[in-house]
Amino acid sequence: MRKRPLGKTTLQVSELALGTWGLSGDGYGPISSVEVDRVIDRALAVGIDLFDTADVYGRGEMERCLGKRLQGAGATFVVTKIGTDLDELPPKKRFDPAHLRTAFERSQERLARDVVDVVLLHNPTVAAMRSKEPLDFLKELKQAGKIRAFGVSAGSADVARAALRDEVDVIELAYNALLPGDLHEVAGDVSESGAGVLARSVLAHGLLAGHWSPDRDFYPDDHRAQRWTRDEFKTRLRQLDALRPLVTGNVVSLRAAALRFVLANHLVSSAVLGPRSVAQLDQLVREAGMPPYLRDTALTDLSARLKNLGVTT
């Protein structure tokens, strides 16, 4: 497993990370605890040392699970996210220091770590970023030696840019071949700040695997049932045509092309994967390939094809 620097931090992390939202059962429906353990153990076996989670995933169960599975596993790194008050009905975002302190202490206990590697604010709004208090609190945790790095999991380029102006160590953004715009928009800010970048939604929730037909239906407890209208879904499927010329030589599938697109971006510290089975994880690790992931000419041609199909690059 190749390593990359996590931006200006001193951490060297695997370029593939294991994301745990899908394993929590929150986004795609139930998954057995046995399979969750198997996926985490397999990730360790193939050399993945970076694990991405949040205090809301399974209402803390994914943090607790990582705390158990990673004990004694050697050098591993955990990214967790805080900023949602699950005690409220419905849950609401809270980034005041009092809530963040309680949330961090609970996460730290579940993760069973004296020092948490990376803590991110979980999808704050631009308005929430206007207050300096949340990031100041995380800076205090870092200065106290309780965390190694801090930052923001951003839902937009505007939020990411605000975080980078406040000199965060790490940002997390959705980044994939059909949603490249946010990272590309803040690329200059990332380079100037030296922040590490975690790329999530690498396969666009499975869309970029290229296995779906236009009449595909999702179960009601699968978030994808509400993510796209039927017309939007059909449009996205048509946009996959832009990636098909990449499937040649050792790029053996659309899934491989999509993953390599992310890894080809030198700003990305790690691509956060979301497999729900050992088989899915093994496919992704196998198809990630080696540098150069995609040729520069292939990326330039892809950008032109995406623009022709209505994708903002």
Results as ranks from 00 to 15, higher is better:
233 F>S: 06
248 T>Y: 14
272 V>W: 07
31 I>G: 01
164 L>H: 05
294 L>M: 08
45 A>Q: 14
310 G>C: 12
79 V>D: 07
146 K>S: 10
55 D>T: 13
85 D>P: 08
276 R>M: 13
161 R>L: 07
117 D>E: 10
242 A>V: 11
78 V>M: 12
31 I>F: 03
269 S>P: 07
220 P>G: 07
232 E>L: 08
143 Q>M: 07
65 C>Y: 08
284 L>G: 00
129 M>D: 04
29 G>T: 05
13 V>I: 13
187 A>Q: 08
94 R>K: 15
201 S>E: 08
193 S>I: 04
231 D>Q: 08
312 T>H: 09
102 T>C: 13
267 L>S: 02
205 H>V: 08
73 A>D: 02
155 G>E: 11
271 A>E: 07
263 L>P: 01
81 K>T: 10
278 V>I: 12
9 T>E: 08
230 R>N: 04
265 N>W: 06
244 R>V: 09
196 G>V: 01
211 H>A: 12
48 I>T: 02
115 V>Y: 10
284 L>K: 05
50 L>Q: 04
116 V>W: 06
82 I>L: 15
11 L>V: 06
285 V>A: 02
108 Q>G: 00
44 L>I: 05
45 A>R: 14
190 V>G: 01
265 N>Q: 05
142 K>M: 03
170 V>R: 05
270 S>A: 06
287 E>H: 11
56 V>K: 02
89 L>G: 06
56 V>H: 06
125 T>P: 09
159 V>L: 10
179 L>P: 10
72 G>A: 11
221 D>Y: 05
213 S>D: 15
278 V>M: 08
135 L>Y: 03
50 L>G: 03
249 G>V: 10
68 K>E: 14
105 E>M: 11
234 K>M: 05
124 P>G: 00
103 A>R: 01
37 D>S: 14
261 F>D: 00
287 E>N: 03
3 K>R: 14
95 F>H: 02
292 P>T: 12
55 D>I: 15
34 V>G: 12
240 L>E: 15
277 S>C: 06
232 E>C: 03
220 P>D: 12
12 Q>T: 09
81 K>W: 06
266 H>L: 11
97 P>K: 05
80 T>D: 13
50 L>F: 06
157 A>S: 04
189 D>M: 05
156 S>M: 09
307 K>L: 07
86 L>T: 15
45 A>W: 09
225 A>P: 04
